[in-house]
Design a protein around this nucleic acid. Structure first.
Lengths: 291, 291
DNA sequence: TCACCTACATGAATTTTATTCATGTAGACG
DNA sequence: CGTCTACATGAATAAAATTCATGTAGGTGA
């Protein structure tokens, strides 16, 4: 008599993800394991049940009859467990929030304002994650992200639009004095930043200077470095306005040529939809919208 | 940001059992592991959740606030999984049924009739488990049990009364001829069987022979052996009537002294309540009630 | 009141299980 | 027809669960 009512529960995690995504490969990515691990786990569950749960088709899998029966039950059960597990963790863990943010935004915008949030919500421990690697929100590393995107439409992610930004070209005031018409800009190095070519060319087009960005332009890893270079009179850089507001106010940076063109995308606060009601996330969201 | 929505699911098995039984020791027994394993698993879950789930009291445990919140959810989720898992296993496993039965009953009653069941339900593969070790039904080893008990009241177990049996004393016909009154029985060895002292003394009392069973009586491990000894003229044994019906009919055994006393307990078919609707169990039950 | 018992805890050793790595297979796609 | 993609598979490795041996604390009975 071989009878073991519950299957090895760990295999269910793999099965649920594979069934939901209809792909072992994607399930593997979601669970941060290899495709091989999912394959083994599913095979082990199938052996345990004495029936196969997936039909293996070329290049993909689909649920078998038994899989169709099993999946909703397993998914529902794991959902319930996950929900209550989070509830218990939340009520017992000290509140903490990791904010994903680009270095430039962190240094030139967020950090100067962050003390106010800490004063208002001292019970929430804030960490910043500015590892440049992710341009998009990465829910594995952060609870909430302050990001720029043209397509705020990833599934299961909430986007709250904070602002659309005007693009401005900035340089040191000395440099600005030497520029009286848009064309004069060509006399100075154009400071390029990886990943922002679109912003630059939109701005250049708006002032009638196509081809402003040359292959020979100095290239920086991030806006932060390019802005510092501009402050030091090394050229002109195009950035969203809020990153240089303080410098414009103090005169550290100046606008050589006016333009009213906007960034094509928007700046958003993003977080996982299912976490929308967590206190720390709500508080940070409410606070940042007032800024 | 430490976030792992699902806890290690294997720890939930231990938690559920411990919470339900309100004892780590009993949970360990149910899951066939050591108490230490449960303790480690629960501790690991508690570490993962960041809060304790049990209050450790001297000699026992009770659920903490968080435990009270978690337990019903986990129990319900595991129940759902178990239910559907069984469903899938059933529909894909070749039907098989292990019947727990005492050796004597197997040899003298069940096996002679079993072919009829196999003929009627050839799709069900029958195994017998007559390992003497369990006097009670053991759901880990068998699907259904044919057992004798005075208290058919274990939780989660269904009992279907098959019959109550008359106790008869039997011996070879040669021995029977030498016995004309109850007292004559004392001239022959009384064949004792471990675990049936009660039956013997009830019978002895009913015919006015208290103290019939002596310390010097030969003792057998099971009725089967004692009956064989009686067949071979080695003495008198008291057994439930159905075990010797065939021998009485053929004259291999005889009843030296009549009595109408019944066994205090009954003969039951037992199985886990939750498995009452399985086809193999229902079929065996229906068949055996006709015998 | 003092052994002794019972139930749970704990750390190290061990066994079992999960995962990776390296490679294989089969069909789709250019 | 090669090449790519997604999954399978077996051996090696890493991680996790379990046991074993022992400890602790409170309760129980001589």
């Amino acid at each position: 008599m071989v009878r073991r009512t519950l299957p090895p529960l760990s295999t269910l995690k793999a099965f649920e993800a594979a069934a939901r995504l209809r792909s072992f490969k994607e399930a593997a990515e979601e669970l941060n394991v290899t495709q091989s691990a999912i394959s083994h786990q599913v095979a082990s569950l199938e052996r345990n049940l004495g029936t196969s749960l997936f039909r293996r088709l070329p290049g993909r899998v689909e649920l078998s009859k038994a899989g169709e029966l099993y999946f909703p039950v397993v998914q529902d059960a794991l959902d319930r467990i996950a929900l209550t597990t989070d509830l218990i963790r939340q009520s017992h863990a000290p509140a903490a929030l990791t904010v994903q943010v680009y270095v430039t935004v962190a240094v030139r915008w967020l950090i100067p304002r962050l003390q106010k949030f800490k004063d208002a919500s001292p019970e929430i421990a804030i960490s910043l994650d500015a590892s440049l690697l992710d341009w998009e929100f990465n829910a594995d590393r952060a609870d909430i992200g302050l990001i720029y995107t043209r397509s705020p439409d990833r599934p299961n992610v909430s986007y709250t639009l904070l602002r659309r930004e005007r693009l401005v070209a900035v340089c040191s005031s000395a440099t600005a004095k030497a520029i009286s018409s848009p064309a004069d800009i060509r006399q100075f190095p154009f400071l390029a930043v990886t990943g922002t070519a679109e912003d630059s060319s939109i701005w250049a087009a708006s002032v009638g200077l196509p081809g402003l960005i040359q292959k020979s332009s100095p290239v920086f890893d991030s806006n932060l470095l390019a802005i510092e270079a501009a402050v030091n009179g090394q050229g002109v850089v195009v950035v969203p306005e809020f990153l240089v507001e303080a410098d414009l106010a103090t005169g550290t940076l100046a606008i050589p040529v006016q333009s009213d063109v906007m960034q094509p995308g928007g700046w958003y606060l993003t977080y996982l939809q299912r976490r929308a009601n967590e206190k720390a996330i709500r508080k940070f969201l409410d606070w940042i919208r007032q800024q």
